[in-house]
Design a protein around this nucleic acid. Sequence first.
DNA 1: TAGATTGTTAATCGATTAACAATC
DNA 2: TAGATTGTTAATCGATTAACAATC
Lengths: 212, 212
Amino acid sequence: MEDIKPTEKKNFSRALLSRIPHYRKYLSSLSDKEGYISATVLANKLSLGEVQVRKDLAVISGEGRPRIGYEIKPLLLSIENALGKDRISEAVIVGAGKIGCALLEFDGFLDYGINIVAAFDTDSHKIGTFPSGKPIFGTDKIKEYCTEHNTRLAVIAVPTRSAQEVCDILVSSGIKAIWNFARIDLKVPKDIKVYREDLALSLAHLNSLIND
Amino acid sequence: MEDIKPTEKKNFSRALLSRIPHYRKYLSSLSDKEGYISATVLANKLSLGEVQVRKDLAVISGEGRPRIGYEIKPLLLSIENALGKDRISEAVIVGAGKIGCALLEFDGFLDYGINIVAAFDTDSHKIGTFPSGKPIFGTDKIKEYCTEHNTRLAVIAVPTRSAQEVCDILVSSGIKAIWNFARIDLKVPKDIKVYREDLALSLAHLNSLIND
DNA sequence: TAGATTGTTAATCGATTAACAATC
DNA sequence: TAGATTGTTAATCGATTAACAATC
């Protein structure tokens, strides 16, 4: 018997997770989705190792057939599923400054099954507006909104000085994971996940790679 | 004889590189910088493993003394040096939209010895303005500016459709490394480094970690 | 059958962690 | 001297890559 429950999120590594949209994009672009595709072909198209592709696909779906390859349609379904297309997670942003608004506008989250549903700010000129179609509420509405919508994901894009305070509010509102753009190590209960984004790191690392 | 040349950039791993500013921040915060500090103390203060700290410091400076620790002043100098404080690298941003402007405004690059010196855009309303004190030029000025200033680092924050075109211009302008926010795999000569930023990945990964 | 392709098991690699010898 | 701390050498861990057996 196949287990076709409403789906479960698996724990993909960050590296694997980053490759999944590439698989999806290529497979979606195929005009004929009837046949099969081999890891070899997919690897060549995406400039990846074919063993790596085979391992990835084994984790994502596990429906390959020797000498044949992977049936495209079920593979695409498995990929959509892995990306959470059928159970969109909602996320909120606290701080509608440059970074917050850039993220509000960014349309890449849906590829990973995440929908940014609202932002919060203290600026009365921003409150009540809908940049990129997303509402901005006052920060005093965070708890009400998040508990009502059962929000589990939040982004902190406020100045350093208010980050910990915002963090505490989010935790008390039931948020389970926080993507932190403020340059401070947030203190949270140990069951809450925090990823501190260091926006300068990527450029700094690139810089270190071009040492003549 | 000590070798005190104008300094060289070492090839720190991305992980190590991300820890260096934390060491710097803590050491800078000390009111008394006369004495010594041990890896044990530093590790506790920063919630890191003490062996990891010891290894990091060995790579960064290598001036520790058993039973004593690391002399704070030279250690700080080594750290500043590792972060490139004495040879600031200049970088430009192409695309002054939400993300481009957020990066223009962001003040964290200097911590890594990088200075964002200018942005380029096609919007005539933006050209000639100085958001965050940084000039915005027309994209037709990219080559002139970068060759004149010997710019080696660039950020691409333009829409996907124009990213490859911008990339080609940057490469022909002598840029050696590109931080790419556009959602496309750029084609570049093999001596040019490209890091494709996937803004949604961190949040997607966090989401995958909170699977109940 | 033969051979292309999968999936598994082993090897490699980089980073982290542990164990231990050197030293001030 | 004794012991705290460093630096080195070995072990672990996760991810990638390679080798190979299974299979359609």
